[in-house]
Structure formats: C-alpha cells, structure tokens
C-alpha cells in the first residue's frame, strides 16, 4: 500500500436514477485517519454519492478504496474490507433484537473471541445498547436506533466509516450525543466520511469539507475556512 495515497479516492463520479443525473462528475478524497464531511442542501446528491460508494447504485467514473477499484464489487464484499456504510434513516433491523443487530455487524468476521471483546467495547461506548440488548430494535427511540446503527458498524471493525445524515430526525440533545460518539470513534483512528445537512455541526467536527450543490462539488476547503466562507455562511449556515 502506498502511504501517500488517500484511503478513498473518487474521480469523475457520475450517478443517475433512470435517465436523471443526480451526481454529475465529482471528485474528492479522504486520507487515512481523516474525518471529512460532505455538506449541501437536500437533493444535492450527497446520499446518492454514498450509495454509489457502497455499491447500492450503479455508477460511472473512478472510485478507489485502499488502492482497489470499487466499481465492479458487489455491495456485500465491502464490509469485509473495512468499508462500512451507516445508511440514511439508520437502517436497523427493526424485527431483530439489539444484540442480533450488533451481531449482524460482525457477520463477516469469524474471530469469535475478538468479536466478544468488540461487543464489550461497543457496550462501553454506548451503554444504553447494553441495557436494551434483548429488546427489538424497532422499539428503540430514534436516537437509540442511530447509536445502534453506529455500534453495529463498529462491530465490523471499519477502517472507513461512511455516515449518512446521522443527525436526521433527532432531538438536539440526541444529536449532540451522537456526534460525541462519532468524535470518539474518529479519535480511535477510524477514517470517517460524514454526509450532513447540518453543515455547522459537520464542519465543527470534520477537518475538511466538500460542499455539494446540484450534483457537483462547488467548494472544497478546510472546515475552518468553510465555516468562515461568506458564501457557505449565507447558503448553509443560515446567516
């Protein structure tokens, strides 16, 4: 592996739904250990980009993860290589218990002892999940489901975590908790690509940011510079 190469490298990515182009040739990169955010309005193409990366949507262009092309990989092959998506709307299995959901995160692993240790670690980070281990995930609150979705992703021992709108639909206090968890995951060295509508929040935790609009990346800069950018302040920070 070439140390200078970014962990995730996207060039000229196009994604279309039927005949309608949703992502029109974007490029970005995420270096190992970095937290990068992708911000923009509803419908800008952020979620579409993540879905294309996770191979849930057909795409054209270049997508390299860890030096290998993602283009022709089946979606179920990626988690085993350390790339895990926490989908928009959380996507927990409502009819499985909390513990079973976490177990699904480790579905591709067969190192039982290590899985048990990771489960302890996840419970340590998210004690609420341990209290509710035997409960059906569908009975959890929205914030707890988001915690579960993140915990489940951590059970796969990700190197690159793709987070899609983790703050969506959550009460402000829950949003704060979710972002504390995200920051502590990043502090453990996990690379994170964060997609958020809440630009202020995303830029406050990420090192760099890309701004998407109409299927294109319109700005790319450090988070601090984007926070100070008058255009960003006006369009995305409501000032």
């Amino acid at each position: 592996m070439n140390a200078a190469r970014p962990l995730l490298e996207v060039r000229d990515l196009h994604v279309a739904y039927g005949g309608i182009a949703a992502v029109k040739g974007i490029g970005f990169e995420v270096a190992a250990g970095e937290m990068v955010c992708l911000i923009g309005a509803n419908g800008a193409g952020k979620t579409t980009t993540l879905k294309a990366l996770a191979r849930l949507l057909p795409a054209r262009g270049t997508m390299h993860y860890d030096g290998h092309s993602l283009l022709h990989r089946p979606p179920h092959a990626l988690i085993g290589e350390g790339m895990t998506l926490v989908p928009e709307g959380r996507g927990v299995f409502a009819r499985l218990t909390v513990a079973e959901n976490l177990g699904m995160g480790a579905y591709c692993r067969d190192d039982r002892g290590e899985i048990a240790a990771d489960l302890e670690r996840v419970y340590g980070l998210l004690p609420r999940l341990q209290e509710r281990a035997g409960q059906l995930a569908g009975t959890l609150s929205g914030g707890e489901q988001q915690m579960l979705a993140i915990g489940r992703a951590l059970m796969s021992r990700p190197r690159l975590l793709l987070l899609d709108e983790p703050s969506m639909g959550l009460a402000p206090i829950m949003v704060q908790k979710v972002f504390e968890v995200i920051q502590s995951v990043a502090a453990q060295g996990v690379t994170i690509l964060l997609v958020e509508q809440n630009a202020r929040l995303a830029l406050s935790v990420a090192a760099r940011g890309y701004v998407m609009d109409g299927g294109l990346i319109t700005l790319a800069d450090s988070a601090a510079a984007l926070l100070a950018n008058p255009k960003v302040r006006e369009a995305y920070l409501g000032e």
């Binding site: 089946p74 979606p75 179920h76 989908p87 996507g91 009819r95 177990g103 699904m104 489940r152 796969s156």
Partner: peptide, 20 residues
C-alpha cells in the same frame, strides 16, 4: 439471523456483508 435480516431489508443486509 442473516435470513431474518435479509427478509427485513435485503439492501441493509448486503451492507452487513450478507450475500443475498
């Protein structure tokens, strides 16, 4: 558990590494 997960949502199950 993988069968039940797939029954509930085949796309999310695939994200977990389940070959549908």
């Amino acid at each position: 558990v993988a069968i039940r997960a797939t029954a509930e949502n085949v796309h999310i199950a695939a994200l977990m590494g389940v070959d549908a």
